[in-house]
Each structure stands twice: as C-alpha cells, then as structure tokens.
Amino acid sequence: MFFEHYNYWIFVILLMIGLYTVMSRSNLIKKMIGLSLFQTAVFLFYITLGKIEGGTAPILMEGEDVLYSNPLPHVLILTAIVVGVATTALGLALIVRIKETFGTIEEDDILRMEDEQK
C-alpha cells in the first residue's frame, strides 16, 4: 500500500508547500519560487502516471517484448519545463520593474503605499 501510492503523496506534499509559499510569503521573489515548486509538483504527478513497472525509457531497443513507459507525459512535461522557465523570467522581469517603481518587493509594503496614495 505504501509504495503503491508513495509518489502521489509526495506530489500532494510538494504542491501544498508550493501553494503555502505563494499564499503566506509577502516577498514577490519568494512567491515566484513557490510557483516553481508548485509547478514541479505537477511535473512529478504527470511523469508518475506514465511509469510502467519494469518498463524502460521510451527509446526503441533491440528485442521483441520490451516494455516502454508512456512517452506522452514526457513530451507534455518537457515542453512545460521550458515554457515554465520563460514565464518565470517574465515574472522576474516584472518584479525588477516593481522594485524600481516602489523601492520594495514586499507585497504588504506595496499595498500600503497604494492605499496611502488614494
């Protein structure tokens, strides 16, 4: 029972940590890091679904009955990782501009400044 669902539980724990980081930390970079963790958790879930017991990497091998793990989740996650880093870069670029405009990257302080301006 334990090993049968082990990966799924790790996925859930990782996802919870990521979500908690995004919600509880006020520092914008910490929030981006939390998003990355959340994303990694989803990657783990997808790859786990493609795994076959006793299978091997989906690269054609000599021999008749070789069992391959499912290549489709691999394709989806491979592109997701690269797209993920591109979008992270975009978020970080926005953080740099926020720092230049507000002088801080703490969400609490930014919200307070916005309130004061009103």
Binding site: N7, F43, I47, T48, G50, K51, I52, G55, T56, A57, P58, I59, Y68, S69, P73, H74, I77, L78, I81, V82
Partner: peptide, 9 residues
C-alpha cells in the same frame, strides 16, 4: 521514472 528526456531538460 524512465523519463530521461524530461530529466535532461
């Protein structure tokens, strides 16, 4: 988990 391409990336 056999996902060598993903690991590489």
């Amino acid at each position: 988990l056999d996902a060598v391409d993903v690991a590489f990336t």
